[in-house]
């Protein structure tokens, strides 16, 4: 086996690391708890994963252009608190429209600071994370705010055998998938993520693409927030707190690279389910709840490590040669 071959095998292993991880986890949890492998539990996992998946789908757009949005949790809180405070008794469709619009505004602020004012994305969204949370806390008076009954009803309703949160998640997923795969815009997102300079030369409006992805992430954060709201009944002061972690983890575990240009929403959904599986499994085996964040962060760490190693390896494979060695 030539060194190039062994490199390719290592790459293949790296690329499938999350899948391997998933199988190992399922086996471990399954052997430790009988309930874990039941169909009901699987449905539970997917329902609980719905909101993370929705937000992570938005995050995928941002990661595809090598950006990051740390403010999704704050956005989710800020957008939903408005619905909880001022829209009791309204048709939930209006709730989604208003929350989505607020999420869009939040995302647009991020986009403006990042693309126009050229502040690094992580620091810009870290700052808006704090500001957004603070505004939401201010609005709520740091109190627990219950959501309207109509929102809660949404969480309990099933349609054609599936809970509504899953339907919303599927809708967002299909729209995102179609956008990324089947529209000019989607393909240009990939192009910008791979090489912004070449993208500009190919006549793509790079700034518009960069701006738009943060807006999409904003809308998804708000919608995901309401889906989560339909399951938790009330917005406490920690609603959406540190949500960015499982969200980024879901996307990166699903194979979307932090370095841009690689990945997609199918993987992200898989990642979200994986993350939720871990949490669910920990509950099932009665693990110490204080260990959850340790496990989740360790998983994110592994995902990022794998992504970095893979990116480094691909770069080495792609390096330009000046001699053509004849085999």
């Amino acid at each position: 086996m030539s060194p190039a071959d062994s490199r390719k095998i290592r790459l293949l292993l790296l690329q499938n690391a999350p899948l391997i991880l998933f199988l190992v986890l399922v086996l471990v949890f399954g052997s430790l708890s009988e309930r874990f492998l039941s169909p009901t539990n699987f449905m539970n996992i997917v329902t609980q994963a719905a909101h993370i998946a929705i937000i992570a789908i938005g995050m995928t757009f941002v990661l595809l252009v090598a950006g990051i949005d740390l403010s999704v949790g704050a956005n989710m809180y800020a957008s939903c608190i408005v619905v909880a405070l001022y829209m009791k008794g309204w048709n939930p469709v209006f709730g989604f429209a208003v929350a989505g619009f607020l999420g869009l505004l939040f995302g647009a602020v991020n986009a403006f600071v990042i693309t126009r004012l050229r502040v690094p994305a992580f620091i810009a969204t870290l700052a808006t994370l704090f500001v957004g949370r603070a505004i939401a806390l201010y609005l709520s008076g740091v109190k627990m705010i219950p959501f309207g009954k109509e929102i809660l009803l949404l969480g309990r309703t099933t349609w054609l055998g599936l809970p509504v949160p899953i339907w919303i998640f599927l809708l967002v997923f299909v729209i995102a998938w179609v956008t990324l795969r089947l529209t000019t815009y989607g393909r240009q997102v990939y192009a910008v993520g791979a090489d912004p300079e070449a993208a500009a030369k190919a006549g793509i409006d790079v700034r518009r693409i960069l701006f738009s992805v943060y807006c999409i992430a904003g809308v998804c954060a708000a919608i995901g927030g309401l889906v989560s709201a339909s399951q938790v009944a009330a917005a406490s002061s920690t609603f959406g707190f540190q949500k960015e972690f499982p969200v980024i983890a879901a996307a990166v575990l699903g194979g979307t690279s932090l370095f841009g240009g690689r990945g997609g929403v199918v993987g992200t959904v898989f990642g979200a389910i994986l993350i939720q599986t871990v949490e669910n499994g920990l509950v099932m085996i009665n693990a110490d709840p204080y260990v959850y964040p340790l496990v989740v962060s360790a998983i994110i760490f592994i995902a990022v490590l794998v992504d970095s190693l893979r990116t480094g390896m691909l770069e080495r494979l792609e390096r330009r040669k000046i001699r053509v060695e004849t085999a």
């Binding site: 540190q242 932090l258 490590l305």
Partner: peptide, 15 residues
Amino acid sequence: FNMPPFIVTLTTMMF
């Protein structure tokens, strides 16, 4: 490992 510093320190922060 050439991991981006912000994400490394973000995960260690959480951990």
